Lab assay of single mutants.
Amino acid sequence: VTVHVNRYTYHFDNPEEAEKFAREMAKRLNMTVEIHGNTLKVE
Results as ranks from 00 to 15, higher is better:
V1Q: 04
V1N: 05
V1I: 13
V1E: 01
V1K: 04
T2H: 10
T2V: 12
T2M: 09
T2D: 07
V3C: 02
V3H: 01
V3E: 01
V3G: 01
H4Y: 09
H4A: 06
H4F: 07
H4T: 13
H4R: 10
H4I: 15
H4N: 06
V5W: 07
V5A: 04
N6K: 07
N6Q: 11
N6S: 10
N6W: 12
N6M: 12
R7A: 13
R7P: 06
R7M: 12
R7V: 08
R7E: 13
Y8D: 12
Y8F: 13
Y8E: 14
Y8Q: 13
T9M: 10
T9D: 05
T9I: 14
Y10K: 03
Y10A: 02
Y10L: 04
Y10M: 03
Y10V: 04
Y10N: 00
H11E: 05
H11L: 09
H11P: 02
H11R: 06
H11C: 09
H11F: 13
F12W: 01
F12Q: 00
F12Y: 03
F12K: 00
D13H: 08
D13G: 06
D13P: 07
D13W: 09
D13S: 10
D13E: 12
D13M: 09
D13C: 12
N14P: 00
N14S: 12
N14K: 07
P15L: 15
P15M: 15
P15K: 14
P15G: 08
E16K: 11
E16T: 10
E16Y: 12
E16Q: 11
E16C: 06
E17W: 05
E17M: 07
E17F: 05
A18M: 02
A18I: 01
A18G: 11
A18L: 03
K20S: 11
K20T: 10
K20M: 11
K20P: 01
K20G: 05
F21T: 00
F21N: 00
A22N: 00
A22Q: 01
A22V: 04
R23N: 11
R23V: 09
R23I: 11
R23G: 04
R23P: 00
R23C: 13
E24L: 08
M25K: 03
M25A: 08
M25Y: 05
A26Q: 03
A26K: 03
K27A: 13
K27W: 09
K27R: 11
R28P: 03
R28A: 12
L29W: 08
L29N: 05
N30R: 02
N30V: 02
M31Q: 05
M31T: 14
M31K: 04
M31G: 15
T32N: 09
T32W: 06
V33Y: 06
V33Q: 01
V33E: 01
V33A: 02
E34P: 01
E34T: 15
E34W: 11
E34M: 14
I35P: 03
I35E: 04
I35T: 07
I35M: 09
I35Y: 14
I35G: 05
I35H: 10
H36S: 11
H36D: 12
H36F: 12
H36A: 10
H36V: 13
G37Y: 10
G37Q: 06
G37W: 05
G37E: 06
N38Q: 07
N38Y: 04
N38M: 07
L40E: 03
L40Y: 12
L40D: 03
L40G: 04
K41H: 13
K41C: 12
K41P: 03
K41E: 05
K41D: 04
V42L: 15
V42G: 04
V42I: 11
V42K: 02
V42W: 03
V42E: 03
E43T: 15
E43D: 12
